[in-house]
Amino acid sequence: MEDLSLHILDIIENSLAAEATDIEVQVEERITENILIIKIKDNGKGMDKETLVNVLDPFYTTKTTRAVGLGLSMLAQASKEADGSFDIKSKPGEGTDITAQFVYNHIDRKPLGNMAETIAACLASLGPGTDLRYRHSRNNNEFLFDTKEIRKILSDVEINNVEIISFLKKHLEEGLIEISEKE
């Protein structure tokens, strides 16, 4: 994975595969504190204790199509390389909560990458019963994107329509530029 936005996309795909109906993605760029925090929380089917113990082992997976499970272990590795930390909490039937922390200006911290493209890609996978809330803060500036609010406006039109995704991607790009320009 070249950047952290790709890791985030991968974890969100896990949440969707775990049949989550509510997914929360939070990116906190606390530049003055030299910290970057990524949190992804879902209400999917969660994991039992045995799965959770093994989840960072690259040679462990619950998938049946292949024998390795690299997604979570690669994000954990990326945070470790940037002197950060990785924490995962999960309960069967309740969901999964992941927090990855990085030293912001660490030379080995991967760039954040294109978050607008990641969230827009998720919209294509979003079923009618699933919502995504994305909160991105940079120091004291914040951008919030909530599919629940958008769906109220869309009414009977699906959010994964190509025209809608294109409009929302532009909105995401502009919102993220705005919080970086405010400083």
């Binding site: 951008f143 609010e149 958008i150 406006i153 869309l154 039109v157 025209e163 809608i164 409009f167």
Partner: peptide, 21 residues
């Protein structure tokens, strides 16, 4: 915080609806 241009989104929604019909 960047506000969603609701009017623009409504226009696209209506266009999508028409083509779906």
């Amino acid at each position: 915080m960047k506000k969603l241009k609701i009017g623009d989104l409504e226009k696209i929604r209506d266009k999508v609806r028409r083509t779906a019909v």
